[in-house]
Design a binder for these strands. Structure first.
Length: 278
DNA sequence: AAACAGGCCTAAA
DNA sequence: TTTAGGCCTGTT
């Protein structure tokens, strides 16, 4: 991968896998939206950006400094996903899944935002998850004017910690509201230190996250995979249960994919969901 | 109209 | 250790 700054954008060339649609719509994030011209605008890590593909290059708004400071890591650009697909093609099914999902990258997202978003995701569908998250940001985040539009950052846990369930009522997120507040307070008062968890073990992270009400195996694994950078975390939801039942059976163990199990999970999930859509 | 949607919690075997 | 029912809300 090479990059160079020009005219308010950074051009990425000589890339391995990087499909914007698959990366942003494979279910790992909720705040990147496709525009009429095929580009994507989103807010992440406290700033707004637009990404577009032109030929073999990807263009990201901002300076080279911003790219080095934020986006290089956010888009996991130090990892070669074409190589990973090869490693994960351990059987015929995984060969098909990785080919179908070629272009997916696992994002290294903000820890609190990821935890909070996946608390909201439980027993919910993607359009409604996105609506609730956007309302949360519009109500409590910082306004950003970008490219002629108005956007909002994801509110820090500290800002939510002092709110009440009544304050969250406009979100219409139902029984998840107290879960959000519990988690926000735990982060704000240091009971849950996600930065510390990131440098600890998977087991410690699981135990700490599951101490909070409303966080079980699935939500904890999503937070660990998508924000603590542990690519061996393996979230299992209803779609993954189907995929596993159809292709592996009862005594499936994600450890067959080693420290890339979480990446394997994302290929399986994306492939499975494509079959369940009309 | 009833069932379902990217779970989690509690109670009960 | 596993299983059933309930939970807010919006959509089909």
């Amino acid at each position: 991968m090479q990059y160079s700054e020009r005219g308010g954008e950074v051009e990425l060339s000589d890339l391995d896998d990087f499909d914007l649609k698959k990366t942003f719509e494979c279910g790992q994030c909720f705040r990147w939206n496709e525009q009429d011209d095929g580009s994507y605008i989103g807010v992440a890590m406290g700033r707004a950006a637009r990404l577009r593909r032109e030929g073999d290059s990807i263009f990201i708004t901002g300076t080279a400094g911003e790219f080095e400071e934020v986006w290089y890591d956010y888009f996991d650009l130090s990892r070669n996903y074409a190589d990973i697909r090869g490693i994960l093609s351990t059987d015929n099914y995984m060969l098909r899944a990785t080919q179908f999902g070629a272009g997916i990258r696992i994002l290294n997202q903000d820890r609190w935002e990821t935890l909070c978003s996946f608390i909201i995701s439980q027993c919910n569908n993607i359009p409604r998850i996105k609506t609730i998250v956007e309302k949360l940001c519009a109500l409590f985040g910082e306004r950003i004017d970008f490219d002629g539009g108005t956007y909002y950052t994801f509110p820090p846990a500290e800002r939510l910690a002092s709110r009440s369930e009544a304050d969250l009522a406009p979100l219409r997120c139902g029984y998840r509201a107290p879960y959000i507040l519990d988690a926000a307070r735990a982060v704000a008062d240091g009971r849950l230190d996600m930065d510390a968890l990131a440098s600890g073990s998977y087991g410690d992270a699981m135990r700490s996250l599951k101490m909070l009400s409303g966080i079980g195996d699935k939500v904890a694994n999503c937070a660990i995979l998508f924000s603590l950078r542990m690519k061996d975390a393996f979230p299992v939801d209803v779609h993954m249960k189907r995929a596993i039942a159809e292709h592996y059976g009862k005594d499936f163990d994600p450890r067959i994919f080693g420290d890339l199990a979480g990446v394997a999970q994302q290929y399986m999930f994306y492939y499975q969901r494509s079959k369940n859509r009309p």
